[in-house]
């Protein structure tokens, strides 16, 4: 018999390393034609760090985004960053990019001031050009600045480095650690159908929303929620590297034995959204969030299975065997 159930959940995910430390560096170079290269050590796993750091760089410099390329594979020559983990890049790295942009703008204004014969404070940097305050006719486009810098003994690389605070360890007695970066919040609602004869679960509808501080790129936020769902569904229902515990015989060695969800396993109705509460630590209020999109669906599935079957399942993955055993135990 097929039974339907609904469930919801509310979860969090911390963003940034606990205890602070957690440094990042960035550099932005002005090229001789007036375009820019952002050099970062942030690894793009597919989460889109190159895309969003470029968005921040364009805003902080006030130049067209097409004029900025991202180099995150400079090896030995790259500024360093802690890494792409702990949902930390969106919270931490934009600070380094922002500082690098401010540094570069200050260098360019100083160089341009000498050309104009004015004080650096009297030079404005906006709309992809520099100009003399109160005398806007005196201006140079970024292409003119780039060529001029190249033809003079000057190098324009803005650098930035940032961390939230010095690292502090847990207090050994109380575990106290007051510095945690930021925290993001997610909620999930879902409807499922479970076959009481086979134990097979079919998610019919799934809605997931995340409070992300500032959605730097709302489309990519929603794509991330979709990607997180895949790992969450797998962990909740089918993926197990130790299927015959306590025996370690017959562990999965091929994908035919290890069941990662496919699009066929995705709910037909699959809605995602973001909410924004600007976080005081983030640039423009932004923080990371997307790891948690693997989390929220799991307890919602457990709640919905209880709604459908009247039993609390307390282990994951909730394979068909687990469901049939739980039903058998109830009698």
């Amino acid at each position: 018999m097929k039974k339907k159930g609904v469930g919801m959940s509310c979860v969090l995910h911390p963003t940034g390393n606990k205890g602070a430390g957690d440094p990042s560096q960035a550099a932005i170079q002005l090229k001789p034609d007036g375009t820019f290269t952002l050099v970062t050590g942030a690894v793009d796993l597919g989460q889109g760090s190159s895309t969003i750091l470029r968005q921040f760089a364009a805003d902080e410099l006030g130049v067209p985004i097409e004029n900025i390329t991202v180099n995150n594979s400079a090896g030995n020559a790259a500024p360093v960053t802690m890494g792409s983990f702990a949902s930390r890049v969106t919270l931490i790295d934009p600070h380094a990019v922002k500082l690098a942009a401010e540094d570069l703008k200050a260098q360019i204004c100083k160089w341009a001031a000498a050309q104009f014969g004015v004080n650096p404070d009297d030079v404005t940097f906006a709309d992809n050009k520099v100009a003399v305050k109160n005398d806007p006719a005196k201006s140079l486009t970024m292409a003119e600045v780039g060529a001029g810098v190249f033809n003079s003994p000057a190098l324009m690389i803005g650098t930035g480095a940032w961390y939230p605070a010095p690292f502090t360890a847990h207090d050994p007695e109380t575990g106290a650690m007051p510095s945690v970066g930021a925290v993001s919040f997610g909620a999930c609602y879902l409807e499922l159908e479970v076959d009481t004869e086979t134990g097979v679960v079919d998610i019919l509808k799934l809605v997931q929303a995340w409070e992300v501080g500032k959605a730097v790129n709302p489309l990519m936020c929603k794509m991330q929620i979709g990607g997180g769902l895949s790992i969450g569904l797998g962990y909740a229902l089918s993926e197990e590297c130790w299927p015959h515990a306590p025996s370690m015989d017959f562990v999965p060695e091929v994908l035919g034995d290890y069941f990662i969800p496919t699009f066929a396993d995705y709910p037909l109705e699959n809605e995602r959204a973001v909410a924004e509460v600007p976080h005081p630590m983030g640039v423009k209020g932004a923080k990371g969030f997307s790891e948690g999109s693997s989390t929220a669906p799991i307890p919602a599935i457990i709640a919905a299975l209880h709604d459908a079957l009247g039993v609390w399942i307390t282990e994951i993955p909730v394979t068909p065997e687990v469901i049939l055993r739980a039903l058998g135990a109830r009698g």
Binding site: F185, A187, Y189, V207, A275
Partner: peptide
């Protein structure tokens, strides 16, 4: 700081 669980739940319920 910057708590948002209620905001996330409201958005989820709305959707």
């Amino acid at each position: 700081q910057g708590a948002g669980a209620i905001e996330a739940m409201r958005k989820c319920a709305e959707l």
